[in-house]
Design a protein around this nucleic acid. Structure first.
Lengths: 196, 196
DNA sequence: CCCTAGGGATAGGGTTAC
DNA sequence: TGTAACCCTATCCCTAGG
């Protein structure tokens, strides 16, 4: 316990959900080793996965709205993990209140249109799209949008958001931009590290 | 609430200090159960002990001007407990262990438990351990701790610190994590470069 | 030896009482 | 307002059993 206590990131949680959806609960080591998820979970042990899943299940099934009278500190968004059991995996609209702008968009600075959690989810979707499409010449924005829209609930202006996100990832060398509007995986394993 | 709020007595505080000196910080349950101190602490839970120690530490460090004693002198505190902060005048039955350099393992921020210099020292120790042990299947945390403790003065609870450090190095691809708690050298030459 | 399930302990953020 | 005391729970640890 001399550990700084490594908090789980949204990407890790998402990977865990996807891993459970694929392998089932109790297959912690398999999930951890699966190359599809190891990119996100390499710093977690199988036991960590088990513990986290237990925790997620508890908070998901447990109490409803946790009203706190203290309101000076507007927390980000206390939405539940939304997937106690093999439910949806990478879904944007996990909570019915997700489109409430005040909850989703935290601070509106010039660099960040999305909050970290949402941005991470989009990163995961992009990663899944590129690694599934495996287009040898790279995938263009339209193809990526189509792929993601077929598998996830996304907001109306998703193409704009995605486009922005892609640009940012390219700028951070997390993606390769083959040419205008064409992208390929590069250091996709680092995708999830992008904060915003 | 439903609680009268039990103020801590001087005896209890003293017992807590002695308990920490004997068992080390983080061993709250052990301290609480220890017959040597349970006489004073029977009405406190391990969590109470932890919370009280935190309060004592806060008020102890909060005094005086901001001091950052970055004097890491890898030598000092012989064997057992290296009591961090809470200073008192009367020590029950403890060796006059200095409350010095080992204190720089105090939390800096949420991400880093050690300052860069100390972290680097630990990296070197880890490197020495792995390259000496040369375990073909990797060395586990316990083996690494044992090796290092035989050759270096380390703070109490070193296992926790080491565990954290190993995890960080793995996350940074500076070490290979063969499996849970088993590590091998990888890019060990870069080990010492890891800042924190 | 590795794995998983479960109990239990700790760390740290929050909250309440004073 | 500040802070000691207490609560909540995510994370981590330990052990038994397969």
């Amino acid at each position: 316990m001399g550990n700084p206590k490594q908090k789980w990131t949204a990407e890790e949680e998402e990977a865990l959900r996807a891993g459970v959806a694929k392998h089932g609960t109790g297959k912690w080591k398999n999930i951890q080793k699966d190359p599809e998820f190891n990119h996100f979970l390499y710093s977690r042990s199988n036991i960590d996965l088990k513990d986290k899943w237990r925790n997620m299940s508890v908070s998901a099934t447990g109490q409803g709205p946790r009203e706190k009278s203290r309101s000076s500190k507007a927390k980000a968004n206390p939405d539940a993990p939304a997937t106690p059991l093999p439910n949806a995996q990478t879904s944007v609209a996990t909570t019915p209140v997700a489109n409430d702008a005040s909850a989703d968009v935290i601070m509106e600075d010039s660099k960040c249109l999305l909050d970290g959690k949402t941005a991470s989810k989009y990163n995961v979707m992009i990663y899944e799209a590129l690694s599934t499409l495996k287009d040898p010449n790279g995938s263009d924005t339209t193809a990526i949008v189509s792929f993601i829209e077929q598998r996830n609930e996304v907001p109306q202006n998703f193409r704009r958001l995605l486009s922005s996100r892609l640009r940012r990832l390219v700028a951070q060398d997390k993606l390769d931009k083959v040419t205008h509007e064409i992208f390929t995986e590069d250091a996709v394993d680092q995708l999830v590290k992008v904060p915003c």
